[in-house]
Design a binder for these strands. Structure first.
Length: 279
DNA sequence: AGTGAGGCCTGAAAGC
DNA sequence: TGCTTTCAGGCCTCAC
């Protein structure tokens, strides 16, 4: 399930493979994603040169030479396959194939929670999908003060607040649990109960966890693979996610009988934490 | 306004 | 063995 590190990994792979290439042909097998792929998508894309890629939260932006940009979201199960040549027969859930003079891109998305659309490059900032996006965790202005100011009116659990893309762009369910663990903060704490110091610790933890994950090429869970088909390795470094019942990896509290990773549901999402270490 | 529930969607895993 | 049910989760819509 692509979160920021996975999307960053995909973006970098795309940049390496097809930046500067010309789109020769787009083939859409299934338009029915989170939003339907616009009917004029092919017309917009074909013939354009790919000027570059950027990431806004979990969105990949493909800037084209014709003043248009493609807006691409992986949803939960979205994958991008980068191949030297377009295959003759599409695989299951291959919804979109983009043929360029440097290689072939295929968007595969089993659950079709992904999204692919376009808008004028000049309109990206006001685009309804992107305009409410919060700060990127790697933005220079993302820090404890920022989090503290955003959290101070939020009574909701801090874990749910971390998933709010209008506050921080790019954190998903896995890294929300991991960052709170790294910051030693209980996921159930009301967001507005965090002190400035705790907000600072959390901001630092978010960046640290994401940095490590990017370095590892993103997580590999059931649904995620890098564009070349290889696995990301960050899952080996998950401290709490999916570790229900296992000893807390990071403290001496495993000597205590009750110290094992707990799983609860917050906002309908699985949440993992150490009940001893996290306060 | 803020919050919570439900829905979309498919495949893997668990349950029967 | 083979069927049915449950679960996973990003993000949107709707209701309170």
């Amino acid at each position: 399930m692509p979160e920021l590190p996975e999307v960053e990994t995909i973006k970098n792979a795309l940049d390496l493979a097809v930046c500067g290439s010309k789109i020769i042909k787009t083939t859409i097998h299934c338009r029915r994603l989170r939003q339907p792929i616009p009917a004029d998508f092919e017309k917009i894309a074909e013939g354009a040169v790919i000027d570059g890629f950027e990431r806004i939260g979990k969105y990949i932006i493909v800037n084209l030479s014709n003043g248009k940009s493609l807006i691409w979201h992986m949803g939960m199960s979205g994958r991008v396959k980068i191949m030297p040549q377009c295959p003759i027969v599409l695989a299951k859930h291959d919804h979109v194939m983009i043929e360029t003079n440097k290689g072939c891109l295929i968007f595969n998305d089993a659950r079709r929670f992904g999204l692919l659309t376009w808008c004028a490059t000049n309109d990206l900032k006001t685009n309804s999908l992107l305009c409410k996006t919060g700060l990127d965790p790697f933005d220079k202005t993302f820090n404890g003060e920022y989090l503290y100011s955003k959290f101070k009116n939020k009574k909701t659990a801090v874990k749910i607040a971390l998933l709010d893309q209008e506050i921080i762009a790019g954190i998903g369910n896995i890294y929300a649990s991991e960052a709170l663990y790294a910051a030693r903060i209980l996921p159930t704490r009301p967001a507005n109960s965090l002190s400035l110091k705790e907000s600072q610790t959390l901001a630092e933890a978010v960046r640290q966890v994401l940095t490590k994950a990017i370095a590892a090429g993103g997580s590999t869970l059931k649904d995620y693979r890098k564009p070349d088909g290889s696995m990301g390795y960050f899952q080996n470094a998950h401290c709490v996610y999916g570790k229900t019942g296992q000893p807390c990896p990071d403290c001496q509290c495993h000597l205590q009988k009750k110290c094992e990773i707990q799983k609860i549901v917050l906002g309908g999402r699985s949440t993992f934490y150490c009940p001893i270490l996290q306060k």
